[in-house]
Amino acid sequence: CHSECLGNCSQPDDPTKCVACRNFYLDGRCVETCPPPYYHFQDWRCVNFSFCQDLHHKCKNSRRQGCHQYVIHNNKCIPECPSGYTMNSSNLLCTPCLGPCPKVCHLLEGEKTIDSVTSAQELRGCTVINGSLIINIRGGNNLAAELEANLGLIEEISGYLKIRRSYALVSLSFFRKLRLIRGETLEIGNYSFYALDNQNLRQLWDWSKHNLTITQGKLFFHYNPKLCLSEIHKMEEVSGTKGRQERNDIALKTNGDQASCENELLKFSYIRTSFDKILLRWEPYWPPDFRDLLGFMLFYKEAPYQNVTEFDGQDACGSNSWTVVDIDPPLRSNDPKSQNHPGWLMRGLKPWTQYAIFVKTLVTFSDERRTYGAKSDIIYVQTDATNPSVPLDPISVSNSSSQIILKWKPPSDPNGNITHYLVFWERQAEDSELFELDYCLKGLKLPSRTWSPPFESEDSQKHNQSEYEDSAGECCSCPKTDSQILKELEESSFRKTFEDYLHNVVFVPRKT
């Protein structure tokens, strides 16, 4: 048989008469490798580009789960590009990614509803959504962080984005990388972005840091009482949809009607710091009717980097990364020049730590249904340095008659930039024990000054392991946590139920 035959053949030295091919099969003959313009397919066939392209389009058009959109890589027609490569849609070739590779997620039936953290986790790592997304989240724990972890990498949506009755959302900033909504599939009414009845939605994105392009379709905003109209108009300008909307697409009466839409800028007039305090004062603000001013709200939190936005980490279910302080308005003076500047002394802060701070007014709604208010920009203030805590785990070892090696770990709280350490030492008198000992005694162990690591005695271990207080009263049991108490109650309830079950099964009433 021919060298490319495997198993047997019907005619000697003829690659077209093989029972099976050793390498690849091409047009009725066995070959060692697939010549151009053919590609290896499933490690035994040679196919042309049209064959591989037909497989790709067949799966793409069917949208069946589990099928493969075949691509070409290293002269092979394979189910998908290997790690580190992405497909070129024009020629199906796998090309190296520039940075992290995109991950295209194809949605069944063309859309997916995100109504819980669990459903959001199914899209973790996706960068391109081939379909439409509907966000409908009523509640949950730590929602802002969970949504950002699972949806934060999405850069492109081919269909539309719909935010509907998501009472738990305060902001859409968890879509931190969303840059493009194509609108290839539109919501009824030709809408590519749809926001309806979101009672706590206050911000779409921080438009000073976020760009969003909507290729096709219109915007729809109705019944978002805490979303200011200025935020919607800003989205029109940034996304390129200005002029597409009709009169009733953006409701003037049901958007922002319960919001404090600040239209003035508060400026800080005085800032002073110490290692654990920050004193702030800002310019006074009074609405047209000074009785509408209820006070100020001061927001602050630790910020290692200057990239904080107002609604980071917030949701309507209680999660809030900001510390909020309510401040009463100052006494009002008739003389504008003698107006008191409101302020606040922030206490209990960490030394040498940068804080993000902003302040906003708290006002009631005027009778004319106009909203007044003022808010400052987010500023960054760093507390002063102070003395560091003591170095940890000092170790001293003498390696000769004239040297001592000293080692330690950095302090747990540096409280500033540590530039150097101060080492103090003092000579001590020799131990009298060394002169009084009889060095001729056998088995004498000389006193040693070398360091030995501390260890816990058996008594201390027994005390720590004991669940009861000892007789001397030195140790006591740790208080039980809520989960331990709940577990004990469940076990007790189970024992009672099981005992009742045994009584009912074992003891049967005697027939009379």
Rank of each mutant, 00 (worst) to 15 (best):
residue 410 P to V: 01
residue 405 I to W: 13
residue 361 T to D: 00
residue 367 D to F: 03
residue 107 L to E: 10
residue 107 L to P: 15
residue 141 N to Y: 13
residue 282 W to E: 00
residue 310 E to S: 12
residue 165 R to F: 08
residue 337 K to T: 14
residue 175 F to D: 01
residue 240 G to E: 06
residue 358 F to V: 03
residue 119 S to R: 08
residue 281 R to N: 13
residue 256 G to T: 00
residue 166 S to N: 14
residue 280 L to F: 04
residue 341 H to G: 12
residue 131 G to N: 01
residue 148 E to L: 13
residue 207 W to T: 04
residue 152 G to M: 10
residue 386 T to A: 10
residue 263 N to S: 11
residue 390 V to D: 02
residue 207 W to M: 14
residue 228 C to F: 01
residue 386 T to R: 11
residue 280 L to H: 03
residue 200 N to R: 11
residue 172 L to T: 14
residue 219 L to F: 09
residue 382 Q to L: 07
residue 136 N to V: 08
residue 262 E to W: 00
residue 229 L to K: 09
residue 274 S to Y: 13
residue 361 T to A: 04
residue 312 D to V: 12
residue 190 N to K: 15
residue 343 G to P: 04
residue 153 L to S: 12
residue 301 K to T: 03
residue 331 L to K: 14
residue 221 F to R: 01
residue 377 D to S: 15
residue 349 L to H: 00
residue 316 A to V: 11
residue 114 I to P: 01
residue 287 P to E: 00
residue 388 P to Y: 05
residue 377 D to G: 05
residue 186 L to Q: 12
residue 125 G to T: 05
residue 179 R to P: 03
residue 320 N to Y: 13
residue 274 S to D: 14
residue 268 F to A: 03
residue 206 D to G: 08
residue 120 A to V: 06
residue 342 P to R: 04
residue 259 A to G: 05
residue 154 I to M: 14
residue 262 E to P: 05
residue 199 Q to L: 06
residue 334 N to P: 08
residue 208 S to M: 09
residue 104 V to C: 05
residue 224 N to A: 06
residue 113 T to P: 06
residue 218 K to R: 09
residue 157 I to M: 07
residue 311 F to Y: 08
residue 284 P to R: 03
residue 137 I to L: 00
residue 108 L to M: 11
residue 227 L to C: 15
residue 398 S to Q: 09
residue 260 S to L: 07
residue 367 D to S: 06
residue 193 F to E: 00
residue 340 N to R: 04
residue 147 L to W: 04
residue 347 R to C: 08
residue 308 V to S: 10
residue 114 I to C: 04
residue 390 V to N: 13
residue 348 G to Y: 03
residue 141 N to Q: 12
residue 390 V to I: 15
residue 125 G to F: 09
residue 177 K to H: 09
residue 264 E to K: 02
residue 209 K to G: 10
residue 372 Y to Q: 03
residue 367 D to R: 06
residue 401 S to R: 15
residue 383 T to S: 08
residue 144 A to I: 03
residue 212 L to I: 13
residue 119 S to Q: 03
residue 344 W to C: 09
residue 198 N to C: 00
residue 303 A to Y: 14
residue 183 G to V: 02
residue 239 S to F: 07
residue 384 D to P: 12
residue 175 F to T: 04
residue 287 P to F: 01
residue 318 G to V: 06
residue 168 A to R: 15
residue 247 R to C: 11
residue 166 S to W: 00
residue 401 S to I: 11
residue 277 K to Q: 15
residue 173 S to M: 11
residue 311 F to E: 04
residue 324 V to Y: 07
residue 173 S to I: 08
residue 306 Q to A: 14
residue 118 T to L: 02
residue 212 L to S: 02
residue 289 D to Y: 03
residue 127 T to I: 09
residue 206 D to Q: 12
residue 192 S to N: 02
